[in-house]
Design a protein around this nucleic acid. Structure first.
Length: 553
RNA sequence: GCCCUCGUAGCUCAGUGGAUAGAGCAUCCCCCUCCUAAGGGGAGGGUCACACGUUCGAUUCGUGUCGAGGGCACCA
């Protein structure tokens, strides 16, 4: 099977050859090809003549003419390119070039778009990493959707991906959780007892207390603090697992912060930093000279009371990731944690153990503003006033929730209007994409029922596909592999959702403009073949997003 | 005060060093005797926050100002 080369690269290669012939001295100039916004400017435009004008001291249009004159023989372009405006070279693909993608799609099937650039290198994607102190809320939902899609995306690029969830199970907030449950237990016996101001006020704390009392009636007042803590953490971890399962997100590994202490990794990290001369003592505390590595101030590592600040285990954790063989690590975090990036990077560099600068990569998602009844819902675990991920999935559905969270650039703040999501769930863009898939299935099913054979569509003549709708659709299909590669490079899963929306739009337009089940046999087969290929790409795209591709809606 | 992200249509958001900046929702008009109208076609709506700079060309890159959110603790 020949490797499919996307149209843009093919056009670039053709012009690169022309340039080499026209101007043999320009050995290191790279031709750039772009897709013009205006369809009158062709399918692909080359603007290199403008870039070269100054360098060569020749008018851009003259350069463009020389390049066009030097174009090698090829069936790629429909005609001799136009030279327009100040010196743009506008090209149109030939029908033969446009239809080529259909065969590639059938040949690759569910793997069309997959690449081997990752070369099976190990990459870890860490995400969600919620403290086990409450149910997952909408913010975690955004994290889960983005993180999981990133993982799928990198896997499609040929990386060996491992998803990891880091539990902060060693901090003061866990103790606070225990105290909260304990207080609810004691209130069961004496309702006049006051609940701690700083405790977690959510209803789920009462639920945990009830369960604890049921299971351990002998300790109904929660006097055994270790036991209460253990129970509460286990309960909430289980709840979170159920949330993630409902969201179809699975982790290869769960990592406990407490293990960093019990395994001595925190101590070892601190010792190494001291040994490397990257620390100093001041006011009874131990500081890291993180300003040597771009941080805006030095950071305390060990407080005067002897305990460590949170970023020390964070550094130890990333040392551990590196040592486990993850040459690349991606951490998906809420933007409220961005302050820790610089110090983790600094800490890793100060370890002087060969970790690349910039390890790990961070993908931050901005906070979500939740609106309910026209008012902003302040998300507060302590006050217990927030929207859980489970609630959202139950009301809006898994597919719509995942799509919604991933369709926007992660670093844009977004407003989630719950009333809108509920009342207009039918208008969620995910249905638009799924509907395109279902429509194709429906057409194919009707054809099959009257004796059609889908496998026959893999080898039909596509020459009848001459309409502009067909041309637009075929070129969109051909963009899929490079779009995926781009989204992976940018760590930008939303580009996939945007692409799928555009592909679905082209299909719907085509559907309304032309009929498929017609008497003209060659044209019918060619059209069915095209939509079968489109169905495949929609399916693959939805798979990367972790969204289902229904055959009926 | 310092740091990070953002500022694009009435709203929610895409996008781009180029030639006329897009989608969905909302508003208005049109399209099912015909493969799913959860759809399509069309109209209106923008000084791409503002200023300066780099460039043949800036909404895109840089600097500054203003605005929004977040982070700046010996909390995590």
């Amino acid at each position: 099977m020949t490797t499919f080369i996307d149209n843009k690269s093919a056009v670039a290669a053709l012009f690169q050859a022309a340039l080499a012939k026209a101007y043999p001295s320009l050995t290191d100039f790279v031709i750039e090809v772009e897709k013009p916004k205006n369809p009158d400017h062709g399918h692909f435009a080359v603007n290199s003549a403008l870039h070269l004008a100054k360098k060569l001291g020749v008018k851009p249009r003259d350069i463009a003419e020389a390049i066009v004159a030097a174009l090698p023989e090829s069936d790629l372009l429909a005609n001799t390119p136009d030279i327009a405006g100040p010196g743009f070279i506008n090209t149109r693909l030939s029908l033969a070039a446009e239809t080529r993608v259909i065969g590639s799609i059938f040949a690759r099937g569910d793997t069309f778009g997959k690449s081997t650039v990752g070369n099976n290198r190990e990459v870890m994607v860490e995400f969600v990493s919620a403290n086990p102190t409450g149910p997952l809320h909408v913010g975690h939902g955004r994290a889960a959707a983005i993180g999981d899609t990133l993982a799928r995306l990198l896997s499609w690029q040929g990386y060996k991906v491992s998803r990891e969830f880091y539990y902060n199970d060693a901090g003061v907030q866990i103790n606070n959780l225990m105290l909260s449950v304990q207080a609810r237990l004691r209130q069961r016996a004496d309702a006049s007892l006051v609940f701690p101001e700083t405790g977690y006020h959510g209803e789920y704390i009462r639920e945990i207390a009830e369960r604890y009392a049921e299971k351990f009636p002998a300790d109904a007042l929660g006097n055994n603090e270790d036991h209460v803590r253990e129970f509460a953490v286990a309960y909430l971890r289980n709840e979170q697992d159920l949330d993630l399962k409902a969201f179809d997100v699975q982790f290869e590994n769960y990592f406990l912060e407490s293990s960093l202490y019990s395994d001595g990794l925190v101590e070892k990290t601190v010792d190494q930093l001291i040994k490397n001369g990257k620390t100093y003592e001041l006011d009874g505390a131990l500081w890291l000279k993180s300003t040597d590595y771009g941080d805006d101030k030095d950071r305390v590592m060990r407080k005067s009371d002897g305990t460590f600040t949170y970023f020390v285990p964070d550094v130890a954790y990333h040392v551990n990731k590196w040592q486990r063989g993850f040459g690349r690590a991606i951490v998906e975090l809420g933007a409220d944690h961005h302050g820790s990036l610089a110090r983790v990077h600094a800490g890793l560099q100060a370890m002087e153990m060969g970790v690349p600068v910039g390890y790990p990569d961070y993908v931050l998602h901005q906070m979500i503003t939740v609106m309910r009844g026209g008012e902003e819902v302040k998300i507060s675990k302590r006050a217990g006033s927030y929207v859980t991920l489970r609630e959202l999935i139950d009301e809006v559905g898994r597919d719509a929730t995942r799509y919604f969270f991933v369709m926007r650039k992660s670093d844009s703040q977004l407003t989630f209007d719950i009333d809108l999501a509920r009342s207009k769930s039918e208008e969620n863009p995910v249905y638009y994409v799924q509907y395109a898939h279902a429509r194709i299935c429906s057409v194919l099913a009707q054809w099959t029922q009257t004796g059609g054979d889908e496998s026959a569509l893999r080898a039909v003549d596509h020459a009848p596909l001459v309409s502009k709708y067909e041309s637009d659709l075929m070129r969109a299909l051909a963009d899929w592999p490079s779009l995926l590669a781009h989204a992976a490079t940018e760590l930008a899963p939303h580009l996939i959702a945007v692409y799928l929306g555009e592909l679905a739009a082209k299909l719907h337009t085509y559907y309304n403009a032309e009929r498929f089940l017609i008497d003209d046999e060659p044209l019918k087969l060619a059209r069915l073949s095209l939509i079968l290929a489109t169905k495949q790409v929609l399916k693959n795209g939805l798979a990367v997003l972790g969204v289902s591709a229904p055959e009926k809606m």
